[in-house]
Write a protein that binds this DNA or RNA. Structure first.
Lengths: 171, 171
DNA sequence: TGTACATCAGTGAACGCGCGTTCACTGATGTAC
DNA sequence: TGTACATCAGTGAACGCGCGTTCACTGATGTAC
């Protein structure tokens, strides 16, 4: 499948630097096939990021299912994110490129608002002054944590508890 | 000047998407002139990011001059970073693209280690378990804060104090 | 069961264009005598 | 002071190639009768 092929190649180099030629070769189909399934390269890239984003959401939602807002839910969600990132070979490219390309950034960012609401609720319960801003900063920190783990080549408890050290336990 | 011209254009669209043609037109020089000063486009981009990075370092160093490691120095440095980012029209592009392009990322990342030592010292004083990891996560958070301010179109005290809310005062 | 036709994912050669890079040339400035 | 020559930043037309996109064609599958 074309999307899977791109993810495969995206483990080695930036997704943005992978030509359609390479993607179809990896997928074992002809070049024209690419355009049977996608309007253009840009639509393909958006689809790639959309899949990743939905996967992350699903993983987090499943992990925090039933937990009430607060520190524990926040950090449980963060750990689930890191697990999902670790399971995805092109995570680094996906995280670093998602916002650099405006067409992708627009397509994704718009949908993320509802998702971000969860962490905002967590910070609200923690009594933070501006929970929406705090949530956004925290998400950036989790993404960075994912990149650290990728560089280490494994999940790392030190990284994960470092995340926790930024969130004071007030409960 | 070519670097300034690129920064100018980088306020509107990703630096990576700006052709050499546009840069020289903005600078008011011929295309060949570009290659009189830079070996190739990649060297130019690295230089662009290097300038930004040095500017940030200088701003932070000046701001924390004389302060001893700890929460206050950490947050003072963060605020100085945000001020420097706000003063730079292409900050968004610079922050988002620096790590997506491997050739730039390599050139920059190597030099940043010494710089990161300062924040690591701050976290060490704060008694955090893994100060180096915490420092790295914090830097990511500051970068995100800069992006928030760019979207707002102005500096914002709420964003800045949100950064502080992640760092418990233990002094 | 067999024949004719429609549909459509898939094909891959060819196209074209954007863009980075080159290079022979210019003209201003500096140096030698 | 004037002439010849060297240097070198700057020029811009031309090149070439990588890469996204197109399109006429194929062949397998489904449907009608």
């Amino acid at each position: 499948m074309l999307l899977d092929a791109a993810i495969e190649l995206g483990a080695e180099r930036p997704l943005a630097a992978i030509p359609v030629d390479d993607i179809v070769r990896e997928a074992g189909v002809a070049k024209g096939t690419f355009y049977v399934h996608f309007a253009d390269r840009s639509a393909f890239m958006v689809e790639l990021h959309t899949r990743f984003e939905l996967e992350m959401r699903r993983a987090v939602a499943a992990a925090v299912e039933g937990l009430s807002p607060g520190r524990d839910r926040l950090l449980t969600g963060a750990r689930a994110s890191l697990d999902a990132c670790a399971a995805q070979s092109a995570t680094k490219s996906l995280l670093l490129e998602a916002r650099a390309d405006p067409s992708i950034a627009n397509a994704i960012a718009r949908r993320n608002e509802a998702f971000a609401q969860d962490s905002t609720d967590d910070f609200a319960v923690l009594g933070v002054a501006d929970p929406d801003v705090a949530a956004r900063l925290f998400v950036a920190m989790v993404a960075e944590a994912a990149l650290v783990e990728i560089e280490l080549g494994r999940t790392d408890e030190r990284v994960r508890s470092a995340l926790g050290s930024f969130v004071t336990n007030t409960e």
